[in-house]
Design a binder for these strands. Structure first.
Length: 472
RNA sequence: GCUCCUAUCGUCUAGCUGGUCAGGACGCCGGCCUCUCACGCCGGUAACAGGGGUUCGAGUCCCCUUGGGAGCGCCA
């Protein structure tokens, strides 16, 4: 049997972190077994589905690199097929028309709740043979009244449901459109899906789907229900309370590498001994859906950040430069004017936790900064620093070859002649040239900023100190 | 309310068929390195939800309680 897994999001928003992990696990399962990964868009809810959401999901999948072998299939394109199946169930008396109005159903539920019973359809239209005037009927599936449904879940093990707990669910609305539980079953069947890997929240739907499947004379696929991903505060992830931080694309905008997010996600509910870092290839070979945990996990932003930094450090510099260029662009910086972006990326690789941070801390390489960081200037651009600064300035101005090595020598020589520790000269110099107290090593920093800009900025710092002195 | 799922450091987790000083990672704290920041290195912090069983022995198996989550829609 060839393995066929699928990811079936409904396009009612962007691709969120939980959906991304579900997609990843399903994708990994398919890849590991040399199977196929199918993408299906569950857009039968015409009210809430949007084309923008479809695009956002596809964009998210592409950015993560979770390419699909088939699809995207749209359920809205398959209505004829669903109608056919519904008709067949009706013909075989495995489904029936229900003429209850929404009001009646609501009243029934309210009564049941009042009696502390589980709200469920009581089957009052099961035996009805005549239509009701003025009511467009829905179609209900005739669920077996007794016996049990056993879900053999790859993650949960055997889960048993009593048929008596299940009611006759609606498979077609009064306008004839099919509902979720019907479309899922038909699609998984038609698309010969062998493994349904999805969120835990669907576990309770599974016995209903199995019953429909059996009524259709089919055998159920293999199920694997993934534990939920909770927000940092342990609450359910929601756009309303957690904002954009649940959107995959938002992570891209905030300077995360897709491989870091993927690595972070794969460790949520899954592990392989003590290993923390996994390349995509390793995930594919090491991942086993059976090893997935069964309890929910909360997302931990600081660990994601750590992984992101790890990947920024480990990646080839070209790869980082490519991403850095995107984020510099967002800051209105054109990296073609200024130092080689490869060199910038190289020196910043181990200092930035995100690419956004890297872009921000690299801006002074490309243009003069507006003003000195207040704290840095206060601490380092003091009158006592003026002499050292002036001395280095002259030494730097005299340099014929603007190389990191020569710059380093100039700084060392200046501090030695003044009998100062190197830091006493380097720190003011750093602030003068970059506007801030933390940069790559002083020689590289000056080298990348360039001779002309360095001298100009040192003069500016000297003016600043003089002004400060006269003000005092 | 009913049904289902679930429970190891703050967080992610290891702990296969019962015997470990309950391990790793992130974070946090301290130290080293050092021109700053960061990296790196060294060290520290911190957990088996509670209660019953089974057993010579339970984080591990069973039951109960409590906590958390999901579902109970003409949403998916």
């Amino acid at each position: 049997m060839t393995i066929r897994a699928r990811f079936a999001p409904s396009p009612t928003g962007y691709l969120h972190i939980g959906g991304a992990r579900t997609a990843l696990f399903s994708w990994l399962h398919a890849r590991k077994h040399g199977g196929k990964f199918v993408l299906r868009i569950e857009d039968t809810d015409l009210e809430r589905s949007t084309a923008e959401s479809v695009n956002a999901i596809l964009e998210g999948m592409t950015w993560l690199g979770l390419e699909y072998d088939e699809g995207p299939f749209f359920q809205t394109h398959r209505f004829d097929r669903y109608r056919e199946v519904i008709q067949r169930l009706l013909d075989e008396d495995k489904a029936y028309y229900c003429y209850c109005t929404r009001e009646e159903l609501e009243a029934m539920r309210a009564e049941q709740m009042a009696r502390k019973e589980k709200p469920r359809y009581d089957g009052r239209c099961r035996a009805r043979t005549t239509p009701r005037e003025g009511v467009e009927p829905v179609v209900r599936f005739r669920n077996p009244a007794d016996g049990v449904v056993v879900v053999e879940d790859l993650i949960r093990g055997k889960v048993v449901f009593q048929n008596s707990e299940l009611d006759d669910l609606i498979i077609a609305r009064s306008d004839g459109s099919p509902t979720y539980n019907l479309t899922v079953v038909v699609d998984d069947l038609d698309m010969t899906v062998s493994h349904v890997i999805r969120g835990d929240d669907h576990l309770n739907n599974t016995p209903r789907q199995i019953n429909i499947l059996r009524a259709l004379g089919a055998e159920p696929p293999v199920y694997a229900h993934l534990p939920m991903i909770l927000a940092e505060d342990g609450a359910k992830l929601s756009k309303r309370v957690h904002g954009e931080s649940v959107s995959v694309i938002q992570y891209r905008e905030e300077g995360y590498l897709p491989e870091a997010l993927l690595n972070y996600l794969v460790r949520l509910g899954w592990s392989h001994g003590d290993q923390e870092v996994f390349s995509l290839e390793e995930m594919v070979t090491l991942f086993d859906i059976k090893d997935v945990n069964n309890s929910a996990s909360s997302i931990n932003p600081s660990k994601l950040l750590w992984l992101n930094q790890h990947y920024i450090m480990q990646s080839p510099v070209e790869h980082i430069a490519h991403h850095l260029s995107y984020h510099l662009g967002k800051l209105d910086i054109d990296p073609s004017h200024g130092p080689d972006i490869l060199e910038v990326a190289k020196v910043q690789q181990e200092r930035a936790k995100t690419l956004v941070e890297m872009a921000e801390m690299s801006s002074y390489f490309y243009h003069d900064f507006a003003e000195f960081e207040e704290k840095a200037a206060k601490k380092h651009l003091r009158p006592v620093a003026a002499e050292g600064l002036a001395k280095v300035r002259d030494a730097l101005a005299a340099l014929e070859d603007w190389t990191a090595e020569n710059i380093y020598q100039a700084v060392v020589t200046a501090s030695e002649t003044l009998e100062l520790k190197m830091g006493k000269v380097a720190q003011p110099l750093r602030v003068a040239v970059s506007g801030r107290a933390a940069t790559p090593s002083i020689d590289i920093t000056l080298y990348l900023v360039g001779k002309e800009a360095c001298l100009r900025r040192i003069d500016r710092a000297l003016d600043y100190i003089a002004q400060r002195e006269s003000a005092a």
